[in-house]
Design a protein around this nucleic acid. Structure first.
Lengths: 191, 191
DNA sequence: ATAATGACTGAAATGTTCATCTGGTCAAAA
DNA sequence: TTTTGACCAGATGAACATTTCAGTCATTAT
């Protein structure tokens, strides 16, 4: 069977988006890296944005899978929530694609990138909200609360503590953040 | 005695910054509104940025004064913290100058504005941290905790709940935010 | 004397022009 | 039927021209 051209294209595009960002990646460039004609890309994807979206969907899937691996049914809900959130934000800090896109969002405000980053955040909150419901509320580990709002607050809190705090102060260790989560959120939520 | 030219200039500049933002305000414009020669401005202020800084210093003073008025020694620390923070963010939403500058920060990223907004945030955190120490810790109303970190978390939490949450959901009422503060932070801090 | 002024200056921002680039198409080739 | 790259219209940005503006200082007013 012939080589899987679609996969070649996706790989090439991922590489280029990671290296140069969304805007600075040209379809000619993607075609060249993938060793296909430019027209071929358009037999698999309606346009540049759809190609981008498909890559982001994979990214989201992988992030969820990473978070899922961080969860350990032997541990408490609180520990697991911390581990999942921390894993997600670590993932964001470790991967060239998310770093580049985050930078492009702040520095250039490319609309397609803004859109996609909003979707990413929404999906993370959705995922965390699910865990708050199933691991926290359903299992009786925490009080009744709005899972959406709780997930939203948790994510914002983590982003503030990891990314904003260190703009003016020495960065917080993973352990310190876990303790803050305990101190500020769980003492209020636990039964 | 002759008219107070310095005050005229400050008033004119405040008006222009509020209406057009920092970048779009010209010194000629300020001079014209103030009915003084442009050179006169430079007898009172070294440059445009120093004039801006003086106006921001007044703004900070007024914000603190507003917050101070919201605090009522009869009430609990928790209530007072909520009232002070909410008052500060209300102030930011109500005043043309802060609205305009916030917009200029996001949309244009004018360096002088970024700088000044960072100072504003720092001063708010400093102020709140002081209240956490004197009203909370010293009076024994809450546990020992890092006042800086607590103030930082509180402010970020409030900004998220007031400004970010409503990007995707119906806005939260003042009362709801107070309850979230109670639920997520105070249950963990109170003795 | 001192205080106030606004015409002036150079640097930086902005507008304009035009050649190049790029997302997307489609007729031809494989 | 699938793949391709030459082609097109609109977007982009480099190069240059023009305007704007923060800040100065010689002159004027008090």
């Amino acid at each position: 069977m012939a080589i899987d051209r679609k996969q070649l294209i996706v790989k090439a595009a991922t590489k280029s988006f990671s290296l140069f960002g969304y805007k600075a990646t040209t379809m000619d460039q993607v075609a060249k890296i993938a060793n296909v004609g430019k027209g071929t890309i358009y037999t698999f994807f309606k346009n540049k944005e759809e190609l981008f979206d498909e890559i982001i969907s994979s990214l989201i899937k992988e992030m969820k899978s990473e978070a899922e691996q961080a969860i350990d049914s032997e541990r408490s809900f609180q520990e697991n929530l911390h581990r999942a959130l921390y894993r997600i934000l670590e993932y964001r800090m470790e991967h060239q694609l998310t770093i580049k896109l985050f930078q492009e969002e702040r520095e250039m405000g490319t609309p397609a990138v803004l859109e996609v980053m909003a979707r990413l955040e929404k999906e993370i909150i959705q995922y965390i909200a699910g865990k708050v419901q199933t691991l926290g509320i359903d299992k009786g580990e925490i009080k009744q609360c709005d899972p959406q709002l709780t997930a939203f607050i948790m994510l914002k809190l983590y982003i503030s503590l990891i990314f904003d705090w260190e703009k003016e102060h020495p960065p917080l260790e993973k352990q310190e953040i876990a303790e803050l989560l305990e101190q500020y959120v769980f003492k209020g939520l636990s039964i």
